[in-house]
Computed example of a mutant assay.
Amino acid sequence: MTWTTLISADELAEAIDHCTVIDARHDLLDPAVGPAAYAAGHIPGASFLHQDLDLAGPKTGSNGRHPLPDRETLAAKLRAAGLDAGRQLVAYDGQGGMFAVRVWWLARWLGHRKVAVLDGGIEAWTRAGFPLSTEPAPQRQGSFAAGASLVAEVDAATVLGNLAGGDRLVVDARAPERYRGEVEPLDPVAGHIPGAVNRPFQLNLRPDGRFKPAPVLRQEFESLLAGRPPTSLVHHCGSGVTACHNLLAMELAGLPGGALYPGSWSEWCADPARPVARGATP
Results as ranks from 00 to 15, higher is better:
19 C>V: 05
21 V>F: 08
24 A>S: 03
27 D>W: 05
28 L>V: 10
30 D>I: 00
32 A>F: 12
37 A>E: 09
37 A>N: 01
38 Y>G: 01
48 F>C: 06
49 L>E: 05
51 Q>F: 09
55 L>T: 01
56 A>V: 09
57 G>A: 12
57 G>I: 11
61 G>E: 11
63 N>Q: 08
63 N>P: 02
66 H>W: 10
78 L>Y: 11
81 A>E: 13
86 G>V: 06
91 A>S: 07
97 G>H: 07
100 A>C: 07
102 R>H: 01
104 W>F: 00
106 L>N: 07
108 R>I: 00
116 A>W: 00
121 G>C: 04
121 G>P: 02
121 G>L: 00
126 T>Y: 04
128 A>S: 07
128 A>T: 10
132 L>A: 13
133 S>M: 09
134 T>R: 15
137 A>M: 04
146 A>W: 04
159 V>E: 06
164 A>P: 03
167 D>F: 10
168 R>N: 10
171 V>T: 00
178 R>E: 04
180 R>L: 07
191 G>A: 10
192 H>I: 08
199 R>N: 07
204 N>T: 11
209 G>Y: 01
212 K>V: 01
212 K>Q: 12
212 K>Y: 08
213 P>N: 06
214 A>K: 09
217 L>E: 14
218 R>P: 00
220 E>D: 15
226 A>E: 15
234 V>A: 04
240 G>N: 01
242 T>D: 09
245 H>F: 09
247 L>H: 05
256 P>V: 08
257 G>F: 08
260 L>P: 00
267 E>G: 02
270 A>R: 00
272 P>N: 11
273 A>V: 13
274 R>P: 13
276 V>Y: 05
281 T>F: 14
